[in-house]
Nucleic acid binder design. Structure first.
Length: 413
RNA sequence: CGGGACAUAGUAUAGUGGUAGUACGCUUGCUUUGGGAGCAUGUAGCCUGAGUUCGAUUCUCAGUGUCCCGACCA
């Protein structure tokens, strides 16, 4: 992508009313634009990052045999009344009447909708287990949206739901999802600072589990057992003040961001909605369910919160909008332009995602933009480098530069 | 939802009871090209409503919005 073609207008100033690092950097670098508190538009760069995250998650979900679906965001009141959650979720669900007076809700979560959708497609234990997931917008009437992308009113969630004959089957799948989630957080660069965390479980199981990423701006407080590399959410610390795995009492308190959670639902929804299966004795039983969520924008914001410096964002390669930022430094004409165009073509020919700053502006501006945007590899081509038939390579996260040929770079990357 | 702060151009800001200035951006022209370059040129603004006043962007009240703290967060 040529920078002269992409819609990208970085700002010279941080936005006035943002304090959260993720919002300041993402707005300044023109990844996102705020529509209102807790609702952001994704600009081309932001959408590229979002898609990368979604695709990592998609791949992982598919790898455990889950199928992707897409459920509606617009729901009739009636389905929510079946489980009693029309009233129960009054604080978080957006509700409204249409022009005929009929009542609707915008999806804040999708247990009811999916359970209903699969109900007539599940007959016996031979249909179980299975799992379905979607990547879709959620709407939550947060009383206080805040911290940029970390707590929004409309956001994208990957929500996975699993369906089982019994608790044993659910537990097996639950453990598999746990590993998969840890893998996802590792892939987006948060592996070292994300903890599998014990949290309150509700009626069906003693615990639910969360994935908490260390960050000073996190809303949650966790207590970490360094021996087991797990944590306990503060919300259950009164009931559980030792490590659930090794009984270690020496726990370390940290602030953290909840980037994912997994939950054993049991038969709460299947019973009410009538999702039953026949077991091998021909007896009807409610399906046992689990649900598993990851907030996409929150994950994106968390990466920015935990990976930046005074000059801007530092994306991990896995979710960066481009892998390489190619800067033409100097007057974009003549031999320099020709040679840089040629390097751009070579990168494209090798399927390397590259943003090519071919604009006719001062070099300094290109360097500043490159830093704030945070693409992992910066390549500079200038009269200095073409004299030696080389390019200057710098990693965003490091200070040192080196001169190598484009062929070497392509080979190494 | 309780408390606090704030609201002036696309962005960041200054300022005033007599309708507003600066920087950056953007337009046009010329110059320049390794860390936001230079000269010239043009462009664009006081959140909404009511009140006080001869006159309100400024003062008062209400509303709306944004951010922060707290509460809340299947």
């Amino acid at each position: 992508m040529r920078q002269s073609d992409i819609f990208l207008k970085t700002k010279k100033e941080f936005p006035k009313d943002e304090v959260a690092t993720n919002a300041k950097l993402l707005i300044k670098a023109n990844y996102i634009v705020k529509l209102m508190a807790g609702v952001y538009s994704m600009l081309p760069l932001g959408l590229r990052v979002k898609r990368k995250i979604e695709n990592i998650i998609r791949e992982e979900m598919n790898s455990i045999g889950s199928n992707e679906v897409l459920l509606p965001a617009l729901h009739p009141k009636s389905i929510w009344e079946i489980t009693g959650r029309w009233d129960e979720l009054s604080d978080v669900m957006y509700k409204f009447k249409d022009n005929t007076g009929k009542e609707f809700g915008l999806g804040a979560t999708h247990e009811e909708i999916l359970t209903d959708a699969v109900k007539n497609n599940v007959n016996s234990y031979t249909d179980l287990p299975f799992s379905l997931y979607q990547i879709q917008n959620k709407f939550r009437s947060e009383e206080r949206a805040k911290s940029g992308l970390l707590r929004g009113r409309e956001f994208t969630m990957k929500d996975l739901y699993s369906f089982h004959e019994d608790e044993k089957s659910l537990s097996e799948f639950y453990d598999k999802v746990k590993e998969t989630y840890l893998n996802i957080f590792k892939k987006v660069g948060l592996g070292d600072i994300t903890y599998f965390t014990f949290a309150s479980g509700g009626s069906f199981s003693k615990y639910s589990h969360e994935f908490q990423t260390l960050s000073e701006v996190g809303e949650d407080t966790i207590f970490i057992c360094d021996d087991c590399r797990i944590a306990i959410n503060k919300e259950i610390i009164n009931d559980q003040n030792t490590c659930p795995e090794c009984n270690n009492k020496d726990l370390r308190e940290e602030a953290s961001i909840e980037v994912g959670n997994i939950f054993k639902l049991g038969t709460r929804f299947s019973e009410k909605i009538g999702l039953n299966y026949l077991d091998s004795d021909g007896k009807s039983n409610p399906v046992v369910m689990g649900s598993y969520g990851i907030g996409i924008e929150r994950l994106m914001g968390t990466v920015v919160e935990t990976s930046n410096d005074e000059n801007g964002i530092i994306w991990p390669e896995s979710i960066a909008p481009f892998k390489v930022h190619l800067l033409l430094v100097g007057n974009p004409s003549g031999e320099l332009k020709e040679k840089t165009d040629n390097i751009y073509k070579k990168l494209l020919d090798n399927n390397i995602e590259v943003l090519y700053d071919d604009r006719d502006i001062q070099p300094g501006e290109k360097f500043y933009d490159s830093d704030i945007i945070g693409i992992p590899w910066r390549l500079v081509v200038s009269n200095k480098t073409i004299e030696k038939s080389k390019i200057e390579v710098k990693k965003r996260a490091e200070d040192k530069t080196s001169l190598i040929t484009i062929e070497e770079f392509i080979k190494n990357i």
